[in-house]
């Protein structure tokens, strides 16, 4: 598949476009269809397309970290999102908190964590099967 000129030259644009779309899906998820799970899958798709066109080595260079590391960061972020509740009001772990009057809060951090775990998980499975 690496032979296709169109595929190879468009891969980078497809990747950034799908990442932008996936972030959009992630962010709007709280009110419209979307969220970390779906966003993460769409983001992973962009990377898979990129790896199909340019080889998994190129994709790993774009990722900078191993997919597993991204997944680990995601899990850490999701777990951290549960801590403010303990510090703030002594409420149970993972009771989401918001900055007064804004939609920004620990739920967003949690969903970003989900997003990263899904991206890392999907790529950890798919990348080893794709050509170098």
């Amino acid at each position: 598949m690496k032979e296709s000129l169109i595929l190879r030259s468009s891969a980078r644009y497809v990747l950034w476009t799908s990442l932008a779309v996936s972030l959009f899906i992630l962010l709007r998820g709280h009110n419209e269809p979307g969220g970390g799970f779906i966003g993460g899958l769409v983001g992973a798709l962009g990377f898979v397309f990129h790896a199909l066109a340019l080889g998994q080595g190129a994709t790993r260079r774009v990722l900078r970290l191993d997919p597993l590391a991204w997944a680990g960061i995601g899990l850490l972020a999701a777990a951290l999102a549960g801590l403010p509740a303990l510090l703030h009001h002594g409420e149970p772990f993972l009771t989401q908190q918001w900055l007064a009057g804004t939609p920004i809060g620990t739920a967003l951090l949690f969903d970003v964590g989900v997003y990263l775990v899904v991206v890392g998980f999907a790529l950890a499975f798919v990348l080893p099967f794709l050509e170098e």
Binding site: H30, E32, G35, A71, L75, L94
Partner: peptide, 28 residues
């Protein structure tokens, strides 16, 4: 309670967040 109109997402990240945390841990 959760400041979100998408009930599915609210369930995932808020009402049942602990379940989700477990699920993504399993994914990892």
């Amino acid at each position: 309670e959760a400041k979100g109109r998408n009930v599915v997402n609210v369930v995932i990240v808020d009402f049942r967040a602990l379940d989700t945390l477990g699920e993504i841990a399993v994914l990892l």
